[in-house]
């Protein structure tokens, strides 16, 4: 089985992927709702920007993050002066990279599920005296929840596999930013690392496959009109 060091890598990957998804969840849902329900000028551009990490080389995304979060960068400078923190070479930075890369997939899944909510039900709620907020809370949100969960799980799987943007942005610091893909790459570079590569690759496949299947099952349950919660 895995060595303690390898378990540490797995744990770090789960932490980075999990935090990335949790941070992204409200942002992705807000963006998905905006794209699904609101008509505004420049919508195509916003849609394109959100999807950019899906098509741009990850190394470019990582480089852009590096510029933004550098000590004197637009976000990095702000973090430094207000909180005295930096995300460079830290696991928090790895989570940000994973989140940015996972965002388009999450927004896509959530947008589809919000578009799938029958707005006639929301109208019925309104005529029954429910405020917009109550309609959102009691009708829109629960009915789109399966897609939201499926999107989050998919984003988590994507975050686990993040490589290019992460290594460019926060580089490979063992115990801090060395997630599964980075560790596998490092092991490949070192002589006699084949056994470790095999074990970590197996774990990667297992984790990603489980997440994908979970996401698919949740989406399918929702499609049959069953309810996740």
């Amino acid at each position: 089985m895995l060595t303690p060091e390898e378990w540490g890598i797995v744990a770090l990957s789960l932490k980075v992927g999990g935090v990335a998804v949790l941070l992204c969840l409200p942002i992705a849902f807000a963006l998905a709702y905006l794209l699904a329900r609101v008509r505004f000028p420049g919508k195509v551009l916003v849609d394109g920007l959100i999807h950019l990490p899906l098509v741009v080389p990850p190394v470019v995304t990582g480089w852009l993050l590096l510029i933004a979060f550098a000590p004197h960068g637009p976000i990095g400078g702000w973090l430094e002066s207000w909180f005295g923190v930096s995300v460079l070479f830290r696991w928090t930075g790895a989570a940000i990279a994973a989140g940015v890369m996972a965002l388009p997939l999450m927004v896509r899944a959530m947008r589809l599920s919000i578009e799938g909510v029958d707005q006639r039900l929301e109208q019925a709620g309104r005529t029954l005296g429910a405020s917009r907020w109550r309609v959102f809370r009691t009708i829109t949100l629960p009915l789109s929840l399966p897609g939201v969960i499926a999107g989050a799980v998919l984003g988590f799987a994507r975050g686990l596999g993040e490589f290019g943007a992460t290594i460019t942005f926060v580089s490979n610091v063992p115990g801090e930013t060395e997630t599964l893909p980075l560790a596998i790459y490092a092991a490949l570079q070192s002589p006699g690392g084949e056994a470790m590569v095999l074990r970590l690759a197996a774990i990667s496949v297992l984790l990603s496959l489980s997440a994908l299947i979970a996401s698919e099952l949740i989406a399918r349950r929702a499609g049959r009109g069953l309810h996740v919660l």
Partner: peptide
């Protein structure tokens, strides 16, 4: 007047029951 304050008892052509 917003829909939720009109107190309309609206029975739509389709029942529009909340499926969840």
């Amino acid at each position: 007047v917003p829909a939720d304050q009109r107190r309309a008892g609206y029975v739509f052509q389709e029942p529009r029951l909340f499926p969840h």
